[in-house]
Structures are given as structure tokens and as C-alpha cells.
């Protein structure tokens, strides 16, 4: 049975200071990309999951996010599951 690929996006919570995002935004403005606003810099985590059903996998990955991958005080997360084609 083909496994799943989990894609986890961890981003700073709105309203939490994001010095990286701010700096990137300023730099883009300096380079002339004036249309840019609301830059945030987060993390992208990819992992292969063996076996489980999509529902079970989704629940497991969310647990991983809650416990380790994201810090709920400062970060939000989003999970995508796709078929693992590798």
C-alpha cells in the first residue's frame, strides 16, 4: 500500500513579532518590489508516513504539530497529506 507524504507548514501567529518576515519585507521593498506586504517566514516540514489511513494519519500529524513541530504560543500550522509517489 502506497504511503502518504505529509507537508507541514509552520508560520508565526498573526500579531506575534516576526523579525525575519519584517526584514525580508524591507529588503524586498529596497529591491523595488513595492507591492509586497505581510511577509511572514515560517518552516516547511515534509515527512513520509507508512501505512495508516488518511484520517488516522491526519490526526497523528496534528498530534506531532501540537507536541513538537509547532509552538502554539507563537506559531500556527497547516497540514497537507498527499500520496507518496517516490
Amino acid at each position: 500500500m502506497p504511503g502518504l507524504l505529509a507537508r507541514v507548514y509552520v508560520t508565526p501567529k498573526r500579531g506575534i513579532l516576526d523579525p525575519q518576515g519584517k526584514t525580508v519585507e524591507q529588503s524586498l521593498h529596497v529591491l523595488g518590489f513595492d507591492e509586497v506586504s505581510d511577509v511572514t517566514v515560517g518552516k516547511y516540514i515534509e515527512m513520509r508516513l507508512g501505512g495508516a489511513s488518511r484520517e488516522a494519519a491526519d490526526a497523528r500529524v496534528r498530534q506531532m504539530c501540537e507536541r513538537l513541530l509547532a509552538n502554539g504560543v507563537i506559531e500556527d500550522y497547516r497540514v497537507e497529506l498527499v500520496a507518496d509517489r517516490s
Binding site: P12, P19, T23, V73, I74
Partner: peptide, 17 residues
């Protein structure tokens, strides 16, 4: 201690990066 929930809040990158 913040990560473990023994203290409130969190520590993020210095504003200077």
C-alpha cells in the same frame, strides 16, 4: 522552560536577526 509550559510566553529571534 517556556517550551515545557513551566513559564508563560516564548523566546523568538532577536529583532536584529
Amino acid at each position: 522552560l517556556c517550551e515545557a509550559g513551566l513559564l508563560p510566553g516564548a523566546l523568538v529571534r532577536n529583532r536584529s536577526l
